[in-house]
Design a protein around this nucleic acid. Structure first.
Length: 854
RNA sequence: GCGGGCGUGGCGAAACUGGUAAACGCAAGGGGCUUAAAACCCCUUGCCCGUAAGGGCUUGCGGGUUCGAGUCCCGCCGCCCGCACCA
């Protein structure tokens, strides 16, 4: 029995495709273009199963579209700047550049072994000066267009290391290396004005029809446009006041307190003379900068003693608190609290014994007795306890309240966004230097374009804490381009999201002397199909959408949206194992016992099976793709990635699953190549006469083409695999003899090769070759269906009595009428279920269901 | 906390717009081939009652709409993802 030699075949066809330049593309206006892009990887060291899944999905699309006659651009590169390279430098003493380059070499070879149809000639690495020099120019253009600016922002500050930490480096409020309590600190930093495009980014979502609905929703909620009002509260005994933003100006009569963020200027000012408030503010600053930490912390407030004067009601004064749940970044960093109609305010009011006055009552409630219990009332209703707003509904009351605020010069209507400007400054080495110079006399001065790129220095010390560029002995010293006096370079580098915000454009002309050739981006953009993890649903995708608009407004390109189609894939999971002490074990450290339990392979001790979780180094539940490709080949790994779960859902990696895929690989191989002698010589013209069985098989093959094509179009790859397996089963059962059978068998084999081609390209190519073709399968076109073979003359119809299945009936297509009803009513199963009762109604859904209602 | 999603046999799943629930595969059981094992091939397999014919039940839980609900609506429960300096 022959076995498919994947090692030989995969090496052979990969070499052949490369030699023939099968995946190299150029602009060609005679064909429709199709740009397939998978999110490029961070070169962490080795590829993981998530990459295999992501890139297999992209490769299926690329190869399928190519077979359909599109001019397909399918590039790959490296998102090469980032924190892990600096960590590796600290831990292992290697230079971030060397570490990154080495990783790219290793991972590049691993990706190549998967047989992905990339145009490798377009490979880019974002840490290459030839890449980042262009984004330095973009930064200068943004600066000139007022899309980049400086402002103070809060960072996580490690007081022991004197270093800014990423959120990831703050664990339970402590620095990951120093263990010091982390504080928030204000730092002057660079921002990109993404909020200038807030409306556009929001309304632009509507046009992104080929994006998942949930991603659009998440972005919409992230941008969160809210209509409301600014309200000015006077402060008793002070000349200034408190500016508050609210979406519910109609609930002003229910206000019982005001609150400001701990980092609000007012809180900072008062803390200078109040050590207890200063301590409270410091406590708040220890929550870190993430919204999650702030919102999940226990709600706490500090009464400043200040009293805010109610704009509508003379004599009413509201206590002003500093509260740990108010965010400085949203609205004005100050709120008024209406406990009756906001759950968080209600809990705060209960804690600090503040009054709870309902001002909106449900329409069916008695306004005189309506009270707020444990739950704030968020619903519609009629205003009560609200003087001139009484009796109005919420919409009317909002308008009336704003009108009154304007009249009193105590406020105005306003639209705010939750979206904040994008902070791009990082106080780190391994990123793109920001090309500006800080001069004592001239201020911020852009580096002249002729001096770009500003290169990262090679000789840095990463061992000492702090920003390496800042304590480099010479790098930051430069003369001011304006006045010529000694000055200093900006030592911040750019957020790595900067690189990933335009790489799709660079791929269009990766060797261009400019960021990209206008002609190339005009031809290729937007990306037709973008594929990657759901974890990028907001930040990366939103930044890239903004960046594209920013580039457009600076005259770089013509499209507004970078990604016309988006697909978000699920994660690759694996069961987890722990030893008896709770330590994580690698899958290869455990042995399955016959009774279903597991033991530690070396010690023989009991091992505990945990639930399946997404593969991660920390849980040790990883399976190395390289080992899998080595053992089963790339095609088998690709097949398994596609077959079991729908691509948007999480996939569980199992040994049984990969072995099942491997069995299929060999089954298909044998089925087609064992009788290949006779098959290779059979003509490709359909015999004029075909017997019923051969005709049925021919129909089934055509249906396979139709179903698989539809499934591939709709990203239902698991179903496509199932249908190809059915086709394989059919081929295995074709045991007739004669010309018609011989032809059908070959037709089925060729079709199977073509349909499985995008998924298992090496095996398909090998089969194609064995069938006697001189040309490559990758150059062959997608199979076409013929309408005459897609119509069935008879259908099986379900027969129900009161919606319950009682029988099935073979009918000719589109049968109906009273004869059908009589036929149905005479069926033994129907008679039994009707139990002598008369039919009240018979519902006929043509070719599907007949339902008798009694 | 806020925002988003998911939930169907022992397991991964399928079921297109409300119309035969469980296609395809994994695991398991039985049989064949073999000195034997592996590989391979064939059969069985949602659960319960029944020798069978047949009947009942079943898509996380509880309601509702409908001739008919996995699919639509309302309310719960569980799990997962994101939250702006991880990428």
């Amino acid at each position: 029995m022959s076995r498919y030699n994947f090692k030989e075949a995969e090496a052979k066809w990969q070499a052949k495709w490369a030699e023939d330049g099968c995946f190299e593309v150029a602009e060609d206006t005679s064909k429709p273009k199709y740009y397939v892009l998978e999110m490029f990887p961070y070169p962490s060291g080795r590829i993981h199963m998530g990459h295999v899944r992501n890139y297999t999905l992209g490769d299926v699309v690329a190869r399928y579209k190519s077979a359909r006659g599109f001019n397909v651009l399918h590039p790959m590169g490296w998102d090469a700047f980032g924190l892990p390279a600096e960590n590796a430098a600290i831990e292992r003493g290697v230079h971030p550049a060397d570490w990154t380059k080495e990783n790219i070499a290793v991972m590049g070879a691993q990706l190549r072994s998967l047989g992905l149809s990339y145009d490798w000639d377009r490979e880019i690495a974002t840490c290459d000066p030839d890449y980042y020099r262009h984004e330095q120019k973009m930064f200068l253009d943004f600066l000139a267009a007022d899309l980049a600016y400086r402002k103070e922002a809060w960072v996580n500050w490690d007081p022991v290391e004197n270093t800014v930490l990423a959120n990831e480096q703050v664990i339970d409020g402590l620095g990951w290396r120093s263990g010091a309590v982390i504080e928030k600190r204000l730092l002057s930093q660079w921002f990109l004005r993404i909020t200038a495009f807030a409306d556009e980014l929001l309304y632009g979502l509507e046009a992104l029809e080929r994006w998942p609905e949930r991603v659009r929703l998440m972005q919409e909620n992230w941008i969160n446009r809210s209509e409301g009002a600014y309200v000015h509260f006077g402060l008793k005994g002070r000349d200034d006041g408190l500016e508050v933003f609210t979406t519910r100006p109609d609930t002003l009569f229910g206000a019982s307190f005001c609150a400001v963020a701990a980092n609000h200027p007012l809180a900072q000012e008062l803390a200078r003379d109040d050590s207890r408030l200063a301590a409270f503010n410091t406590e708040c600053s220890r929550l870190g900068t993430s919204e999650e930490a702030i919102e999940t912390a226990e709600k706490q407030g500090f009464d400043t003693g200040l009293r805010a004067i109610h704009p509508f009601v003379e004599g009413v004064e509201l206590p002003v608190y500093v509260a740990n749940f108010v965010l400085m970044e949203y609205g004005t960093g100050a709120i008024f609290g209406c406990p009756g109609h906001d759950q968080r305010d209600l809990e705060f009011a209960h804690k600090y014994d503040l009054r709870v006055v309902p001002v909106v009552a449900p329409v069916d409630a008695d306004p005189l007795t309506f009270e707020i219990g444990e739950d704030a009332y968020h619903g519609d209703g009629t205003h009560i306890n609200s003087a001139f707003l009484d009796g109005l509904d919420i919409v009317e009351a909002k308008a009336a309240a704003i009108e009154r605020l304007v009249k009193l010069k105590a406020g105005r209507s306003a639209i705010t966004f939750r979206l904040r400007d994008w902070g791009v400054s990082r106080q780190r080495y391994w990123g793109c230097p920001i090309p500006v110079i800080k001069c004592a006399t001239c201020g911020i001065v852009p580096v002249p374009e002729s001096e770009l790129p500003i290169l990262l220095p090679d000789d840095v010390s990463l061992e000492q804490p702090g920003n390496p560029l800042d304590h480099h002995p010479t790098w930051k010293h430069a003369d001011c381009p304006q006045c010529g006096q000694p000055a200093q370079r900006e030592t911040d580098t750019l957020d790595t999201f900067f690189e990933s915000s335009w790489y799709f454009a660079r791929f269009c002309s990766p060797h261009a002397g400019t960021a990209f050739s206008r002609e190339a981006v005009d031809y290729w953009l937007p990306v037709d199909q973008y594929i990657g993890g759901i974890e990028h649903a907001i930040l990366h995708l939103l930044y890239a959408r903004f960046f594209t608009r920013a580039l457009k407004s600076c005259g770089y390109l013509s499209v507004k949206e970078p990604f016309a189609g988006l697909f978000t894939q699920g994660m690759v999971c694996h069961e987890t194992f722990k030893d008896e002490d709770g330590g994580w074990l690698y899958p290869e450290q455990v042995t399955a016992q016959t009774d279903g339990s597991f033991t530690h392979t070396e010690t023989g001790a009991r091992a505990l099976v945990g639930r399946s979780e997404s593969m991660s180094k920390s849980k040790r539940n990883i399976v190395d793709p390289v080992a899998i490709i080595e053992a089963y080949g790339a095609d088998t790994a690709r097949l398994f990635m596609l077959s079991d779960s729908p691509p948007e859902r999480d996939l569980e990696w199992t040994t049984a699953g990969i072995e099942g895929a491997w069995r299929y690989t060999n089954r298909l191989w044998r089925l087609i190549t064992d009788p290949v002698g006779p098959m290779a010589t059979i003509g490709s013209t359909r015999p004029a006469e075909m017997g019923d069985a051969a005709l049925q098989a021919c129909r089934s093959i055509h249906r396979s083409i139709a179903v698989v094509t539809d499934d591939l179009e709709k990203f239902r790859f698991n179903r496509a695999v199932a249908r190809v397996r059915e086709l394989t089963n059919l081929l295995g059962e074709l045991d007739g003899i004669g010309d018609d059978f011989a032809w059908v068998r070959r037709f089925g084999a060729e079709t199977a090769a073509k349909l499985i081609g995008p998924m298992m390209p090496h095996l398909a190519e090998e089969i194609w070759h064995q069938l006697g073709h001189e040309t490559l399968l990758v150059e062959a076109s997608w199979p076409e269906t013929e309408a005459e073979f897609l119509v069935e003359d008879s259908v099986t119809v379900a027969v129900q009595v009161n919606g319950k299945l009682r029988a099935t009936l073979e009918l000719s297509r589109d049968a109906g009428g009273t004869s059908l009803e009589n036929q149905v009513l005479a069926l033994p199963g129907v008679v039994r279920a009707m139990d002598g009762r008369a039919a009240r109604k018979v519902i006929v859904v043509p070719n599907k269901v007949v339902n008798v209602v009694v």
